[in-house]
């Protein structure tokens, strides 16, 4: 708690805040109580689990890089748009956030699938995306990139444009202003957005299952393996979930430590 009185949070806020924390923490505690801890090492030793974990890490790394290289420019452009254009582009950009994941998968399927709107032409060229690891990366990027875009765009809109104007008047070209002024200003937001996008990609399930299918080592990521494991043994599915949570926690906490050190 802060000792400066003027910045202290109102005490009543602690009630809903605790309820919010409990809503998330209680099921997590429930999981920790029920999980067959002793079986986790044995479970992790199975090729199915190792393939799923490795595939998840690979595809999430790829989709995060894709989200950054495509989403960051989109966020910058979006932050400069005004009026109807801004509303329209932003609505389209964040649409995957409101789509049920299964619908996201279906949309990708009818667009990029073998008989899809675009896919039928790709298929003629010998490019078949369905049931490949590339399909997993596309599905993950589709659902996770909006989180990066919306985070960075929000930060860009609240930055002080005067700094950019000063840089421009000093003769810096737009690319230089972007690299030296704009992006460093929203560095923490880029890191935060990237982390959230990665986390969303790691937990991606419905779109992957619908668009990419499920095959060990090729398209069956950790969430899909958990879903399959549940068919035979719910406890094993819970044990694998702990692995997923552990991986996610490490990857979510790491950027925070990096920024703290750089300060």
């Amino acid at each position: 708690m802060s000792r400066t009185p003027d910045t202290a949070v109102p005490l009543w806020l602690l009630v809903p805040a605790s309820a919010a924390l409990a809503l998330v923490a209680v099921p997590l505690i429930g999981l920790m109580v029920r999980v067959p801890w002793a079986r986790i090492p044995q479970l992790l030793a199975t090729p199915a689990a190792q393939d799923a974990l490795w595939l998840s890490l690979r595809t999430c790394a790829a989709s995060t890089v894709l989200s950054l290289t495509l989403g960051l420019p989109l966020a910058v452009v979006l932050s400069r748009l005004t009026g109807h254009w801004a509303v329209m582009v932003r609505t389209i950009s964040v649409l995957p956030m409101v789509l049920p994941p299964v619908v996201a998968g279906l949309v990708l399927l009818i667009t990029l699938g073998r008989r899809g709107v675009l896919g039928q032409y790709l298929s003629v060229w010998g490019v078949d995306i369905g049931f490949t690891t590339a399909a997993v990366v596309i599905a993950q990027t589709f659902v996770s990139m909006p989180y990066l875009v919306i985070t960075v765009e929000g930060a860009l809109r609240s930055t002080d444009r005067a700094l950019e104007v000063v840089a421009a008047t000093l003769g810096a070209r737009p690319t230089m202003v972007l690299r030296r002024v704009t992006l460093p200003l929203v560095g923490p937001a880029i890191l935060g957005g990237t982390t959230v996008a990665f986390a969303r990609a790691l937990g991606e399930f419905g779109a992957t299952l619908t668009f990419a299918g499920s095959l060990q080592g090729t398209t069956r990521t950790l969430p899909l393996q958990i879903y399959l494991q549940r068919e035979t043994d719910t406890n094993q599915a819970l044990a694998l979930s702990v692995v997923l949570i552990a991986v996610a926690s490490v990857l979510m906490v790491a950027p925070t430590l990096v920024t703290r050190r750089s300060r």
Binding site: L109, I110, G113, R115, F131, L209, T210, A212, G213, S214, L215, Q216, T219, R220, Y227, L228, E231
Partner: peptide, 16 residues
């Protein structure tokens, strides 16, 4: 190329 968790997904993959 894919081993799905339920038969509906198999039907879906073929009908599409």
């Amino acid at each position: 190329v894919s081993q799905t968790t339920n038969v509906t997904d198999v039907v879906g993959a073929v009908t599409t």
